[in-house]
């Protein structure tokens, strides 16, 4: 494998895993449910996106030719992440979960 492909793959892998870690840290330390919802649904999705791009680059150099099917995972996650976030936010509002003190505005 040429050096620059390896470097690109490494870059995307590190970026992806760091984004996944940021999402998990957000889930761990933010004060209330609504703020916690922000970390995982987006940072983690992007983290998997980075991993998938790295995987595509890595497998692109093989004799069978480039493979695109990893893109389907990212596509699927990008379509489903907003749906599950929306659903959980609605459930939380129905259960009237406590808000962080500094929150302005009210849920319906």
């Amino acid at each position: 494998m040429p050096f620059w492909i390896e470097a690109l793959v490494s870059l995307f892998l590190v970026l992806g895993s760091l984004f996944a870690l940021v999402g998990a840290i957000g889930l761990y330390r933010l004060p209330d449910f609504y703020t916690r919802l922000h970390g995982p649904t987006k940072a983690t999705t992007l983290g998997v996106g980075g991993m998938v791009i790295a995987s595509m680059l890595f497998f692109a150099g093989r004799p069978e030719g480039p493979s695109l099917h990893e893109l389907l995972i990212t596509l699927f996650l990008f379509i489903t992440a907003p749906v599950s976030a929306h659903m959980l936010a609605k459930a939380a509002m129905q259960k009237k979960l406590p808000l962080a003190e500094r929150t302005r505005g009210k849920p319906w």
Partner: peptide, 12 residues
């Protein structure tokens, strides 16, 4: 799109 752009989640 609003849910995917970080910093905002569409709730209802």
């Amino acid at each position: 799109i609003i849910s995917l752009t970080p910093g905002t989640v569409s709730a209802d």
